[in-house]
Each structure stands twice: as structure tokens, then as C-alpha cells.
Amino acid sequence: MGEGRMTVSPIGSGRPKIDPELAGFGTVVKRFREAADIKQGELAELANVARSYISHVECGRTKCRRDFAERLDATLNAEGQIVEAWDDLLEKIKHVRYPTHFVAFPKAEGSADQLRVYETHLVYGLFQTEAYARVLLVDDDAVATRMRRQGLLSRKPRPLISVVLEESILYRQVGSKEVMRDQLEYLVELSLREGIFLQVAMTAHYRGARASFTIATQADRSEIAYVVKATGGEVTRDPSELTRMSAVMHLLNTKALNTEDSRAYIRKVVEERWS
């Protein structure tokens, strides 16, 4: 149909590669299509394209033109939100203030259907209260950016999120005692939500667990990871590194307190240290 250019995977992969940035836009299209109770084939007829093209747009396998986004927006009565998402696909990364080493990761995070996280020093960014984040970040724009990232916690469906926090994070004071109390109470609240699994790793040696990392798994099971380094961090798709991180995450999930005991432990720290 000539509506866009297919994103092709490396030779030998056997199927088109899903681009996490495009998948973020596709998620918006799919949400409005399902809200309108329209199947992909029906939307394809209304938009005068092949059903497979709608599928590729929703999965992040191709980037449509802006005029096609406008047609989808009108067809699905999205009131400009699909067009806004398309514009965001091209422009947002230029305006949202992420550290240079982090800039490639938020799109993958936003389009992931599973996030696996290990944190050694601070509360996971998506789980931070605004007050906690304000102590860590340099200005209001950076705080606003972090709060926008947290929008995926309210997304339906949201990704499956598994987070392991080292015990020391619960005791490391960031801001006032009130900030810490509210932050830990928020962790308890989050841990009660369906699809969020929060565990506390007690102070110990865990083989291979040397630095914080986040693994974002996409709908096509491809993965990208953000790894904290001494100089800030880096984004990687290297299969061997992802395999090692997955093994470490499995070990941590096995050795850390289970989710129920982790909640009880967090409550205990709130009572004994931050009340």
C-alpha cells in the first residue's frame, strides 16, 4: 500500500524486528481500536489498507505516515490523541530531558510487556514518589520527565513488572524522614497491585549481581537492557549480556524475600526507622 517502511531484522532472524519506539505508537492505536470495539480487519477496510498493515503498525513493525495517523485518528474518534502520539514518536525524544546515556531506553521501557529490574542503591525510577525524585534530580523538568515515565503504571494492560531492591535502599535516607516514610509506604501500595512483583534482597553476596539493571522485553520477545555504570550507564542488546542478566535476575528472584515477606519487611522498616 506504500504507507510506510518496514523495519527489517538482521539477516537470519527469520522475521521483521519490532522497533520499541514504533511499538509505543502502535500501542496507542491498538488501545483506541479496541475501545471502539473494531477488529483489525474492519479498521483496515475503513482505512483502505490491508489488515496486515494495521497489524504491523500496532506491533511496531512499520512506521506509517502522518496523514495515515490522521485517518486513524478520525476513524477511531481519538480526538487528536493518535496524531499526538505520532508526533511524539518523532519529536518527544528531542525535548524530554534524559541523560545522554539513557536516551535510547525510555521508548523500549514504554512499549515493553515485561520489565525485570534489579536496584542496588535507590528506589526504581518508576516506583519513586515525586518527593523522593525531587531530592535526586536536578530540576523541575527532570522530575516531570520521571513522572511522565510512570504513566505506564496506569496503562491497561500494563507490563508485568518484577523488581528486586537491595535491603540497604530501605535504610538509605533520601530527603527527610517523611519523604522516606511516604516512599516506602508507596512501595507497599504498589506491591499489592496485580502484575507488580516487588522483592527485597537481604544484604548478602549474590553471584554476578554487581550493578543495577533493567531488562525490557518486547511483545516479540526481543530484549533491551539498561545497565548502570560508574559513569552513568549504557543501553545494550548484546545477547550474551542479556543472558547473564537474566541468570542474575533468576538467582535474585530465588534468593530474595518473597513478595509477601518483602511487604512485611518494608512495613517493619517504616515503623522502626522512618516513623
Rank of each mutant, 00 (worst) to 15 (best):
A209R: 07
V227N: 01
L170R: 02
N77E: 14
L22K: 02
D113I: 12
S52Q: 12
T203A: 12
A264V: 11
G125H: 01
P99M: 09
T120Q: 08
E178N: 10
A211V: 15
T129G: 03
L251N: 10
R207K: 14
R244W: 04
M245K: 11
V179I: 13
Q150C: 04
A264H: 04
V164Q: 03
H205W: 13
I18W: 01
E79V: 11
R158T: 03
N77M: 15
S275R: 10
G60P: 03
F105S: 05
E223M: 11
R51A: 15
P159N: 06
L72W: 00
E119H: 08
F105K: 02
L170I: 06
A230H: 12
D87A: 09
V188K: 05
A264I: 12
Q150K: 11
R155H: 14
S222I: 10
T7P: 00
A201W: 04
S9W: 03
V117Y: 05
G233N: 09
R237M: 13
L72M: 06
S168D: 05
V248E: 03
I54C: 00
M249W: 09
P106C: 07
V164H: 01
R5F: 12
K177Q: 13
A74R: 11
K177M: 11
A133M: 04
N48I: 13
V8G: 00
A36W: 07
